[in-house]
Nucleic acid binder design. Structure first.
Lengths: 295, 295
DNA sequence: CCTATACTTTAGTTTTTCTTAATTATATGT
DNA sequence: ACATATAATTAAGAAAAACTAAAGTATAGG
């Protein structure tokens, strides 16, 4: 037995519920004619009339009354199925996809605070340079540093950052001019657009010609740059948020005459519907409160 | 929350059940590509993958597994609803729409036999010249005298009939020629094509010229013609089946030299699905057995 | 490594569905 | 009683959805 066109059943449901083709048409954003035709097609398919057409309204025939509950039930089952898909499959585990350097320098030092406040939520942190495939359930949420334009994903701005010239105690002398001191040290470049812009801006400010510019030790991971600067390997250009702990404990110093706002910002990223999950909301709030504290 | 295209859910159901797009395509009489596209559209709409594509087969993801039972349930509810429509709303009452003359002359004299054999089935006989609207549930079944071509309805041939020249005892004398006697009596015409044809044929056989032909008492109801002939009002041209009881009891006589097969026949008529109802089947069998007995 | 199989992709066609506009029917107000 | 307004219907063309055909991709199995 072949089913009637499914759309006609949907229209039937609305029209029956509202007792009017006109209202059903409005609710479904189509014309009256579309409803009329679909209902007629359904009636033709079933071989019986479903509505008694009165002048201002329509009402169900015995057959219509009989059919309606089934159709209602079927559609609500579709909805239930789809709703179930959007629900959190593991509400007690939060899978985070975070950039390795941000994870190492910012998130891990603070994460015990989140664990303390939400000890019912197990955390799994997946450090990765690329955004994972959320559809596969590989992660619940991502923290990204970028421009906020993430295909098909919801994103919420967490905050910006600044590029700072960072060195270890004793490497630079604050009273002497920077330009001269710069050439005495290895310069360490984090390979990222903002770092490159920052170095270039610094050279411009110090009137260092392109030809004179010193070469860099390039490291493709900000966390390692932090390590390198910490261990006295040279001078780095780093984001403030990545060296917060070291600034607080005065393990690193910032050259006071220079700073540059990053073009990129931090975003919390994930499929729209993930943001209604309690565990995600908890993490988002925690994250936001920590982003406010800007050293 | 908007539902996905319903057709894609249908395809999903088949593909999931068969574990193969190819087989689903065959089952649904479409190409593989159609299935692939619909599934893809569904996945896009839901924002998650439903199948893991392996080389020779596909299998459901966790989400697919979660969705399937709901979709299955919804579709079976549609089917249940539609099936319920085709069921007999009152299996203990048989509503018959019958031509008034056939009801009076043939059906009513025999109907007690049916009642006796099926005392669980209440009968309602609706004598009407026009076929009722079956869609409105006005009747379960109709008995018609015609050509069997009933729009959108199933019909089963019951049998034919003959037109006979009928008179009351003593009105005609079998030994004398008919032609002479005919002009001594009132002729009664049942207004129907077969009766008109029969009279015309009789006149032709008796070589009565159109100009000579006597005029008729026209009665637009065969049952009344029977009454008129019975009460000696004149000579009638009637269908054999309508005067069976009177022939058996010799209340009426048939002129032996004449008969004509009717062009019309008797049909049992109704919507296709009514014929699977037990009460209809019972009546059909009873009717057929009584149509075999042809006096 | 080749072949056969099953899914995917794309472009173009077919089918279905929808809209517009004219039509019918009837309840409601004048 | 008559005009008016509302709601459903119908028909024809327009738009959208679904499908096919054909070429592509990937991989299990000989």
């Amino acid at each position: 037995m072949s089913l009637p066109p499914l759309k006609s059943l949907q229209y039937f449901m609305h029209a029956a519920h509202l007792g009017s083709f006109k209202l059903a048409a409005e609710q479904l954003f189509v014309t009256q004619a579309a409803i009329s035709q679909q209902i007629r097609a359904l009636e033709a398919h079933l071989g019986c009339e479903l509505f008694i057409r009165e002048t201002r309204k329509v009402k169900l025939t015995r057959q219509g009354e009989q059919l309606l509950p089934h159709v209602l039930g079927a559609f609500s089952q579709f909805e239930a199925g789809i709703k179930a898909l959007k629900q959190d499959p593991s509400p007690n585990t939060l899978n985070l996809s975070v950039l390795p350097s941000f994870a190492a320098c910012w998130l891990l030092p603070k994460i015990d605070d989140f664990q303390k406040k939400h000890n019912d939520i197990k955390l799994r942190i997946d450090p990765s340079d690329q955004l994972v495939d959320f559809e596969q359930g590989e992660a619940d949420l991502g923290i990204r540093f970028g421009q906020g334009n993430y295909q098909d994903l919801h994103s919420e701005l967490l905050g910006g950052d600044q590029m700072l010239l960072v060195y270890k105690q004793g490497m630079l002398e604050e009273n002497k001019p920077l330009k001269a001191q710069l050439f005495d040290h290895q310069l360490i470049m984090d390979v990222c657009p903002d770092a490159q812009r920052a170095w270039q801006l610094l050279f411009d400010e110090l009137l260092i010609q392109p030809a004179q510019q010193p070469s860099f030790l390039e490291i493709d991971n900000a966390a390692l740059v932090v390590q390198a600067v910490l261990s006295g390997q040279g001078i780095g250009m780093l984001r403030r948020r990545l060296i917060e702990p070291q600034l607080v404990h005065q393990q690193l110093h910032v050259w006071q005459g220079f700073e540059l706002m990053c073009e990129y910002k931090y975003y919390l990223v994930g499929p729209e519907h993930h943001f209604s999950w309690p565990k995600v909301d908890a993490f988002k709030s925690w994250l936001q409160s920590h982003f406010c504290e800007f050293v």
